[in-house]
């Protein structure tokens, strides 16, 4: 009985090896997913530094600089997402 159970478990684990070659999702899927999430984080980050500036944890010059950087990165990412999803 135990041996059967063991064989079943073992078969289960090596089952994928007998399927046909599977499309490796590691590239574009991963990238798209990552970009989407990076975009969400950037939106948040912009909100965050707005609040930080209000509180006074960031001086005007640095605030403008950081904000420009973030906005730039966000627009780059949006462009990239568009490019990948149109392919």
């Amino acid at each position: 009985m135990l041996f059967c159970l063991f064989s079943l478990v073992f078969l289960y684990s090596i089952w994928p090896l007998f399927k046909g070659i599977i499309f490796n999702p590691s590239n574009s899927q991963d990238t798209l997913d990552a970009l989407e999430r990076r975009k969400t984080i950037l939106y948040r980050e912009i909100q965050y530094i707005d609040a930080e500036y209000d509180i006074g944890n960031l001086n005007k010059e640095d605030y403008n600089l950081t904000r420009t950087e973030l906005v730039q990165e966000t627009s780059d990412i949006i462009a990239e997402i568009k490019l990948i999803s149109s392919n």
Binding site: V9, S13, W15, P16, L17, I21
Partner: peptide, 16 residues
């Protein structure tokens, strides 16, 4: 090798 099937089997084994 990058053969995704190996990864799936390996992951199942890790679960076991």
């Amino acid at each position: 090798s990058g053969d995704y099937r190996l990864f799936l089997a390996g992951r199942r084994m890790a679960i076991i």
